[in-house]
Write a protein that binds this DNA or RNA. Structure first.
Length: 529
DNA sequence: GCTTAGGACC
């Protein structure tokens, strides 16, 4: 069962450096929708759910269907020969949800998609095509994506938006622009300013600001520029830290008679504040002065700063560790009748926590609740980090329970902070609970969770358990760091656990994982934190 | 689908 999964994952990436691909794919957690690890426990898959049973219940359960597909379907065989899905009733919801769950398994997703279409006579709607095109774009199978667009009844600009975003994300900006140009022959209407703005925005978000500027200048005559387009370009240049270009576009914008709005100013404000160094006090003051000047300019134009403007400044205070200023600013915005959002509160809370004023932060958390603002995982993580620093297990656990009660989504981070904290405190029963929660909620574990758990277990000399998790992580497609391998390997040898050691070796061989060979000559030190 | 909060080790 396990080896079958690995085989399928292997087939998914045909490049020779598949491990690297796998490794990278699991590290792209900050990309908006990069591949996620499988959401389920393969090891514990119950026998009774195998597709040899009448598959009636699958018709409603995308979770189950996707598990079965991942586990039993060989993408190189027809769906019938690996599965008996004949009795299945496909509905749009089932198809969408299943495709979403197969996002990291593009071949299986495509197999299912094609099977539904060709064998089950199911007519995919636009949403299903869009998901599929997105999945294909992620693995750069643009030829197949184009094929699907070709067979769609009426692809919309949304479909093209997805394709264009994937092309740009893959660095194929020329192709993206060509797709944009070809779009009107598919969607049955001419491209509009809005579509053009989306193209510019996507180019800028992925850092191709120069390309965006070029095509903007080239097609100004065709698409009437609006303040949104200018804002997008200003955002791009700010992102690249090229304030002079950003200002040039602001000037141009005004000179063609377009009024900058509050978003334009917030983009500029963020440009000033975003990466400015705050280290010596003068730099912090300089940044704040620049921000305040911009506030003044806004007011001169009759534009009132909004929550976002204040949140940007509050983030600067937080980075500069200025709890008093942070609280002042929060109060002054409230007096102006601007209601803080989660982002606003989170910045202030982060500031207070990082400055040790956790009681004040706790008061703000209460205030948030009173104002009907739901804290996010990011908000909670600020507290957890501080509780970890204080080794305050009780408070951390209490807050975690509160999170569960309010069914606040836990982030990967929440778990990683807490797993580390409770391992260090040797409260392994809680670590276990967290680990189970993490799997159940479907957010993890990720490469970091495995790495830190294994390192903690090694430190406690629980070699066997560490080894189990090491094997498990490989089976899930995570490439361990070299240091993790070395720590475990050395520990096993030093404690004469040759059988476990051999098991580890066999696993690595099976998966053809090698860590660079110079380790043989190294003198190992056991892991120290 | 124009803007804001976001890890931790070394």
């Amino acid at each position: 069962m396990l080896s079958r999964l690995s085989t399928q994952q292997r087939l998914l990436f045909s490049s020779p450096s598949r491990l690297k691909t796998r490794f990278l794919s699991h590290n792209s957690s900050n990309s908006d929708d990069g591949p996620k690890s499988p959401h389920f426990e393969i090891l514990g898959f119950p026998e009774t759910l195998k597709p040899s049973l009448p598959p009636l219940h699958i018709s409603k359960d995308a979770d189950l269907l996707s598990r079965i597909l991942i586990e039993h379907h060989n993408p190189y065989h027809s769906m019938e020969s690996s599965l008996q899905l004949n009795g299945i009733r496909l509905s749009p919801t089932l198809v969408h949800q299943t495709l979403v769950r197969l996002k990291s398994f593009s071949k299986i997703a495509l197999g299912f998609f094609a099977w539904a279409k060709d064998q089950a006579n199911y007519r995919h709607d636009e949403a299903a095509y869009n998901i599929m095109i997105d999945v294909l774009g992620k693995v750069r199978q643009f030829d197949v994506a184009w094929q699907l667009i070709g067979e769609m009844v009426d692809p919309s600009s949304r479909t093209f938006g997805i394709l264009i975003r994937r092309l740009i994300a893959a660095g194929l900006t020329r192709q993206a622009i060509r797709a944009f140009d070809d779009m009107e022959s598919f969607i049955g209407r001419g491209t509009e300013s809005e579509d053009f703005c989306y193209l510019l925005d996507t180019l800028c978000k992925y850092g191709y600001v120069k390309v965006a500027t070029e095509i903007f200048n080239g097609r100004k005559a065709r698409f009437r520029p609006d303040s949104k387009m200018y804002t997008v370009l200003i955002y791009g240049w700010c992102k690249l830290n090229r304030a002079s270009f950003a200002e040039k576009f602001l000037e141009e914008m005004v000179s063609v008679g377009l009024e900058p709005n509050v978003v334009t100013y917030n983009v500029l404000l963020n440009g000033i504040c975003r990466r400015s160094s705050l280290h010596p006090e003068e730099r912090f003051e300089r940044t704040i002065r620049a921000a305040e000047n911009l506030f003044g300019e806004m007011q001169k134009r009759g534009i009132e700063p909004d929550v976002t403007s204040y949140s940007i400044v509050l983030h600067v205070y937080s980075r500069a560790h200025k709890p008093a200023l942070s609280l002042d600013k929060l109060n002054s915005m409230k007096e102006k009748g601007i209601f803080p959002t989660v982002a606003t509160y989170t910045s202030v809370i982060k500031c207070l926590c990082s400055c040790g004023r956790i009681e004040d932060a706790e008061l703000l958390l209460v205030e948030m609740g009173r104002n009907g603002i739901t804290p996010s995982a990011v908000t909670y993580n600020c507290f957890f980090k501080e509780y970890r620093g204080r080794k305050d297990a009780d408070k951390a656990l209490k807050l975690y329970r509160k999170m569960e009660e309010s069914s606040c989504m836990r982030s990967m981070h929440t778990y990683n902070i807490l797993v580390r904290m409770f391992s260090k405190l040797n409260r392994m029963e809680i670590v276990r609970e967290l680990w189970d929660d993490m799997k159940k909620s479907g957010v993890g574990p990720d490469l970091d969770s495995y790495t830190l758990l294994i390192h903690e277990l090694c430190e406690k000399q629980k070699w066997k358990e560490a080894c189990q998790f090491f094997v498990e992580m490989i089976e899930k497609g995570f490439l361990p760091q070299k240091i993790t391998f070395e720590t475990l390997y050395t520990g096993l040898i030093q404690s004469d656990m040759l059988r476990t050691w051999r098991r580890l070796q066999k696993k690595l061989e099976e998966e053809s994982i090698t860590f660079s060979s110079e380790f043989k000559d190294l003198h190992f030190k056991p892991y120290r934190r």
